[in-house]
Write a protein that binds this DNA or RNA. Structure first.
Length: 271
DNA sequence: AAAAGCCCCTGGATGC
DNA sequence: TGCATCCAGGGGCTTT
């Protein structure tokens, strides 16, 4: 599933292609999560000035306005000089003078949305409640601890909610909690400053490692060249229910939290 | 205000 | 072999 590392891998794969490209046309397939919110005429002729990432959103800054792209659960983007005709799961082709940016998304949880600016209500709705970027200086252990103090929900669900820290989805939340030795069911507000510090370090380390190996490819994710990531080969707990812990050999446990599966080692993550 | 549950979607795995 | 059922899950929305 595209989480921060996968979205960042995508951004890095696109930046040299789309920066400075001029939009010629936009073709849409089946409906995505939300309507585009602008006429194609409005986009035609605009220059793509930058491509940024905020949480799991990609932001294409245009001359006027921006396009917000979310990969949902099964989306991936690729860019090429020319591409074959769109298949049944190709739901957006953004044609530019340099090539085509294509969104492939079988489950259609993804979205491409236009906003006039980041303060546009449409953009605020999607970006406004997002927490801090975990791979920046702004992600501070003391502030993290303060934010968690206000939350009584299980730490795993607080991480997934994305309003404290962004980009951590189901895979990396499970992996970071393992690395920090924290059980996913632990109430967020009960974590000490020291354990919060370990979690802070673990989130950064896990995301940075995943980014370094091209993200995780489970089912649908592919980078912009159609290639896969490799982090899934080294998960400590995610997807390993019943298998021995790589550290202590205890069988990895599976439980459900908020309709999502959670994996942990009952020995390495005692409380 | 926070938390919990719902729901969107479809391919692949599983069960009878 | 074929069909029904379940599951994966990001995250905005609604309800508690």
């Amino acid at each position: 599933m595209p989480e921060l590392p996968e979205v960042e891998v995508t951004r890095l794969g696109l930046v040299d292609h789309v920066t400075g490209a001029r939009i010629q046309a936009l073709h849409l397939g089946k409906p995505l999560r939300w309507p585009l919110g602008v006429s194609v005429d409005r986009l035609r002729g605009q220059l793509i000035r930058h491509i940024r990432r905020r949480g799991k959103y990609l932001l294409l800054d245009l001359d006027e306005g921006l396009l917000l792209i979310h990969l949902g659960m099964s989306g991936h983007l690729r860019f090429d000089r020319a591409l074959p005709p769109p298949g049944p799961h190709d739901h957006m082709d953004l044609h530019t003078d340099r090539g085509v940016l294509r969104l492939h998304d079988p489950r259609r949880f993804g979205a491409v949305v236009f906003a006039e600016s980041e303060s546009d209500p449409q953009a605020r709705k999607l970006l406004g409640r997002l927490g801090v970027e975990p791979l920046t200086q702004a992600f501070d252990p003391a502030e993290f601890h303060r934010a968690l103090k206000a939350r009584r929900a299980p730490i795993k669900q607080v991480l997934l909610a994305g309003d404290v820290v962004v980009g951590v989805g189901n895979i990396y939340a499970a992996e970071a909690l393992f690395r920090a030795g924290i059980r996913p069911t632990m109430k967020a507000h009960r974590l000490s400053a020291q354990r919060t510090g370990r979690l802070h370090e673990a989130i950064q380390a896990v995301l940075a490692r995943a980014l370094a190996v091209g993200g995780s490819t489970l089912r649908d994710f592919a980078n912009t060249n159609g290639g896969s990531g490799y982090f899934q080969l080294e998960t400590m707990v995610y997807g390993r229910a019943g298998e021995p812990c790589r550290v202590c050999q205890t069988p990895i446990k599976l439980l459900r939290q908020g309709q999502r599966s959670t994996f942990f080692c009952p020995t390495c993550q005692k409380f």
